[in-house]
């Protein structure tokens, strides 16, 4: 049986992740997410990338930081692109061009813009067609690459350039949508939420996803230094606090069965996470808005505690 969890020594023997020389902001955590995903695969990986920070900073022609075959076509169609790659691979196998027993893991990376908003239809289609791929969402909660515009992943109350906090509105006035549940509603075999701060959990989830045939989805929170407004050394700490406050619960839906993977011993109030970020600083003197955020988190957390261990149809 294959090992579910890898030690960091084992991971370091498998991959170095993205090559040095990419232009991601200092302290951006998504290269670590890529490292964990690529290192988790037991077979060669082919990557498709939606337009977004990750795509832009890693592939400024003629430079590329990807040590694996990689393709980008547009913002809205990464799931369709990886569907095509996966189908082409199957066709080559059927024609005998590619050995029939060769195994390849197909991975799509998309940001929240390319997943919650612009790429949602292609993701939905690819899942419905039951392509064999893993979709990894790195969720930094706004259009950071173009200069911090709100997306449907942006949390309530967050300041962005298109939801500016001021006299008229206190940051974004809508709550974010729950992408993991939207994806899970496609009845796919595996959907999960993870965080780079909890690396053992993330690697286990990636390895679990890779052993399943069909569409898989992992949403990973990815704090953003300029977009969230914090010191660049604190990216992993911000991801950890998102988990400890239950803003970003670590859970998975494996063949319909909910599993809460981490229950904080002391569930921290969301304020601890909010006050570390400049995008929420205007909320600190508005306790009623913080309460609204807290209530939303508590509601979801209660639901997850109830769902934990249950099958969807139970």
């Amino acid at each position: 049986m294959k090992k579910k969890i890898l030690s960091l020594k084992e991971l370091s023997e498998r991959t170095y992740g993205l090559a040095s020389g990419h232009r991601a902001c200092a302290g951006c955590p998504f290269p670590s997410i890529v490292k964990m995903i690529l290192g988790s695969s037991d077979y060669p990986v082919v990557v498709a990338n939606a337009t977004g920070c990750l795509e832009v900073v890693t592939t400024i022609f003629p430079y590329t930081a990807w040590p694996v075959p990689w393709i980008h076509s547009a913002f809205e169609n990464v799931a369709a692109t990886i569907s095509g790659v996966e189908t082409a691979f199957k066709a080559l196998q059927n024609k005998g061009v590619m050995p029939a027993d060769r195994k390849v893991n197909f991975v799509a990376f998309g940001g929240d813009g390319g997943t919650y908003d612009i790429g949602l239809q292609s993701l939905s289609g690819a899942m419905e067609r039951r392509h064999n791929f893993l979709y990894v969402l790195y969720d930094n909660q706004a259009y950071m690459n173009t200069g911090i515009q709100r997306s449907s992943a942006t949390p309530f109350g967050a300041h962005t350039t298109t939801s500016p906090a001021g006299k008229v509105i206190p940051g974004k006035v809508q709550h974010r949508k729950d992408i993991t549940e939207i994806v899970a509603a496609h009845d796919i075999p595996y959907a999960a939420q993870a965080s780079p701060s909890h690396w053992g959990d993330l690697i286990r989830k990636a390895r679990r996803a890779f052993e399943i045939e069909g569409p898989k989805f992992i949403a990973v929170i990815s704090p953003c230094v300029p977009g969230w407004g914090y010191d660049e050394s604190e990216s992993i700490e911000l991801a950890r606090l998102a988990v400890e406050t239950c803003f970003w619960p670590l859970y998975e839906i494996d063949n319909g069965i909910y599993k809460l993977n981490y229950k904080p011993k002391n569930k921290l109030p969301v304020k601890v996470w909010l006050e570390k970020q400049a995008r929420f600083k205007h909320l600190l003197d508005k306790p009623e808005l913080i309460d609204e955020i807290q209530n939303k988190i508590d509601e979801k957390w209660k639901k997850l505690l109830w769902l934990d261990g249950k099958k969807v149809e139970d």
């Binding site: 993205l18 090559a19 040095s20 020389g21 990419h22 232009r23 200092a26 890693t58 592939t59 400024i60 022609f61 003629p62 430079y63 590329t64 930081a65 990807w66 040590p67 694996v68 990689w70």
Partner: peptide, 19 residues
């Protein structure tokens, strides 16, 4: 197709002077 071979090529670009 703007295909880049012999990947990764990004180490040709040094980012150490950002710090």
């Amino acid at each position: 197709g703007a295909i880049v071979r012999d990947v990764p090529t990004s180490p040709e670009f040094k980012t150490g002077d950002w710090k």
